[in-house]
Each structure stands twice: as C-alpha cells, then as structure tokens.
Design a protein around this nucleic acid. Sequence first.
RNA 1: GCCGAGGUAGCUUAGUUGGUUAGAGCGGUCGUCUCAUACGCGACAGGUCGUGAGUUCGAAUCUCACCCUCGGCACCA
Length: 483
Amino acid sequence: MNESAKKAFYITTTLPYVNSKPHMGHALEFVRADAIARYKRLMGFDVCFNTGTDEHGIKIFQKAQEEGVDTQEFVDKNAETFKNLLKSLNISNDKFIRTTDEYHKLAAQEFWKRCFDNGFIYKKTYTGLYCAGCEMFIKEKDLKNGECEIHTGKKLEEIEEENYFFKFSQFGEKLKEYYKENPDFVTPSYRLNELTKMIDEGLEDFSISRLKEKLPWGVKVPNDDEQIMYVWFDALVDYISTLGWPVDSEGQFKKYWEDGETVQICGKDNTQHQALRWQAMLLAAGLPLTNRIIVNGFINSKGQKMSKSLGNVIDPVELVEKYGTDALRYYVLRELSPHEDSDFSIEKFHEAYTANLVNGVGNLVNRILKLAEDYLDKAVDIESKKVFFSQYSDPFDNLDYKKAIDGTWEGVKWVDERIQREEPFKVVKADLEKGKQMIRELVGNLAEVAWHLQPFLPKTAEAIFDAIAKNKKPETPLFPRID
RNA sequence: GCCGAGGUAGCUUAGUUGGUUAGAGCGGUCGUCUCAUACGCGACAGGUCGUGAGUUCGAAUCUCACCCUCGGCACCA
C-alpha cells in the first residue's frame, strides 16, 4: 500500500493533571484510546495517538511546595509515574506531550495571539473573594458560613484583579450549528443534549489568565509580563501542539488535524471543556474543530467513589502486577460500561478474569495447540485468517469497541462448542487424516480469535500467533489460575 | 429547583416502530466428555419486566399518575 494513500486518524486522551498519582480512571481512558488506535492501524489507517501530562497551575505549584521540592522536579517525577503506567498497560501512544515542554509553551502562546488578534480576548477587572490560605479565589458556592472551607476563621479579602477573558459568549450559536451538522460529535449522544442546554442557558466569557504573583507556575501571556495563562487555556492547546502546530515543519498538523479524522476521549467531568470550550477556542483561532469526542463514565468501588478515606481505592499498577496487563485491559474494555459509571470490585474482576481469560481464551489456546503439537508435523498457515469479520469491524469503525470485543468472545464460545461437537480428539485416533484436517481448521479458528483480539489484548494475540507458528502449546498458561 | 435518563432473574444486562412460551453472560444446581488451566459441553432452577390505572384483540414496549435511582446545570485537571 502506498503510504501517502493511507487515511490519517488522530486520537488523543485528555492530559492527566499530575498533582497526584495515576488512578483507575486514567488507566481506563488510556486503554480505550489504545484499543481504538490499534484497531485503526490494523485497518490501514495512518494513526497518531497522543497522550501526555498537564503540569501547570496553582495546585501543582502548591503541592510541590508542600513536599518541599522544586516545581519542575516535582512534575518531572510525576510525569514519570504516568509514563510507567502507560508502559505497564502496553499503551501504543505515538506522542507523549508535557505542557511544560518548550514547544508546547510556544504553541500555547501563539494560540493565544491568534485568538487575541481575532478579537476574542480582552482584559477585564474581576472582583472576587480571595483566600490567603489557599492563595486563590473562592467561589460563592464554595463558601461555608461565608468562610473558606479549609481555612475557617480566616477572613476572606475582596480583591480586584485584572485578568484576560475569552469571549466564549460569542460562540454559542456556531457551536450549536456544529452539533446539528455533526450529530455523532459526542458519544454518548445524550451528552450533546446537555451541552446544547448549557448553550441555551447562555455562555459566559471566562477568565484565561492569572496574575503572575498569584500563579507563578504556568505559560506567560504574550506581551504582558504580569500575567500567566490559566491552566485550561494552556493545556487544551496540547491536542494540536503535539502535532507540531503552528510551525508544522513535518506536516503532521495538516495531515492529522486538518485532513484526517480527529477523535478525543475524555472523562465525563471533562465533557464541556472538550466539547464546548476547546471547540470555541478552535473557532476563535480559525482552526478546524474536533470530529468526535468519546465520553467515559466514572469508576466507583462498592457503589461509592474511590477514596483513600473509604479505603476502597484499587490501584491499576498493583492489579497489573498480580493479574497481568491484558487482564486489566480486558476488564476495562469489556466488563465496564463504555459510557456510564461502573462499579469496579476486585471480586468481580477476579471472577471475570477466571471465567473469560483463564477458562475462556487461555484454556482454548491450550486445548487446540496440544492437539496441534501432538498430531500436526508443521505449523498451520494462517495468513488467510488475518481479516476482520464485518460483525466486528462495522461497529468498531464507528468506535463501538464494546460490540467488537463482545463479538470476539462469542467467537471463543463458538470454537469451544465446535470442539465439543466434532470431537477431533476422538476422530484423530480413528481417522488420522480426517482428524488432522479438523485440527488444522481449529488452529485457523484460533488464529481468527487472536486476530480479533489484537486491539484489545495485544500481548495475548501475539503469544497465540507465536504459539501457532511454533506449533506448540505455550510453556506456561497465557492466563494462570489465580486464587 | 430546572432539564434529562432509567427502574427487566442473586449480579451485569438485550429487548429498533406494541404481537407466538421476555433473551444473554456471570454466579448456583445437576448431568456429561476428556483435547485442555478441576477446564469444556449440555440441562435445570430463578423474572407479578418499579407501583397503580388506562388505550388495545394483544404491552416490558403507548398514555396518565405515583414511588425510587442516577446524571447534567460551566472556569472542579
């Protein structure tokens, strides 16, 4: 295939904010984006998969101070923990951008300039209640008895501050038009209704900068030494700065963002930032909008939000250490709801692992390859099996990975049933040639399963192909029984 | 408060425009095979489809009321 003829596909996660360590929600977003990216690559798309870390803002600055370390040192260390998570989840990202990367900062400033030049940024005096303890403004709704929740007894000061604002209010109609023309813009679709309603209630301009003395850690506002960009305005630009915008010396921005299909995946708390603010910012800068946004639900544990105080936090890294990368990937992709909040419990995880990976795929691999190893004198040619079934690719083309992975397990079940029905282990003893032919077909079926497994459980798929090529049952089970 | 979604077997859930005995997976029980990781396959049990009323020859599916749960309501990375 001609490289230049490949269709470009771009997918990006949101950038995790590195003020704390990675949690299951991050793992979920990474894995789902990864499955889509891997599928698109297999379908012949020229894929660019972006992720990274969001490293500016007051909270990070404060956290670093609390720990008594230099802010850059602090973010360097935390960015590393996210990189390690990506590695342990076997994420195939092509890019890893950090908002403290020099090229990103320059891009954020250029983005600001374009919006400013186009007349969508202005300066305005802002009056608010400032808590010296938090070193930030406290919103009216967060007041407890007229005081800051954390620093009770401390008097709040009414402070006037000049900040830059973004003319968000001007984009409501344009965004609604875009939603109308692109009904698939947001998945699940009811989120689009929520967004439309928000627009109807009126969009307010929002502040996009802070005084440098209050927020020393961030990207400088162009042509104003007193002001630092508020994190959002800086961070959102990463989706294009990672592609080399604005310089675009390698043509990636043009290829992926302008000419390709663009997909963003995010958590539900991020919906409006991705689908509303960021899109308005793109309009302001005169750039194409995102094609699709996929919104994930949250993960609860035992019906409640995971939190340290409840002691119900499940660490993705620990789970990977015990059950393996593909076990976690499987659970996140198949057993959790694609868009609604879901409950994550070790018990359910363990049950699903045993039922579908140990007794399902793992056992199927062993039973077929034992027969192959014993009765076939050479590896089966499986080249013709390396295609996707339409029941799988049709929904997956539309980013519905859940239907695709469900279909894969229907395939596993079908092969198990076939073995039971045809009893090749008996036939091979009565009629060797006929039995061998059956086993060859089963190896072919196994190859089909492995092919469809690739976007979801890449290591497992690879291990199956490898075992088929060697015509040997794996030395150790793909998914060991864990008690 | 406003807007929206939904309440289906122990758990997770499928059920486009109303139509034969409401499907599936997991879990449970029983049976069975032996190639396989005590795995697989088969069978069974288990549902007044939130409650009440209405429309209809016929409703989980339409209408109304009520109960309950959940989500969104903006600068929370």
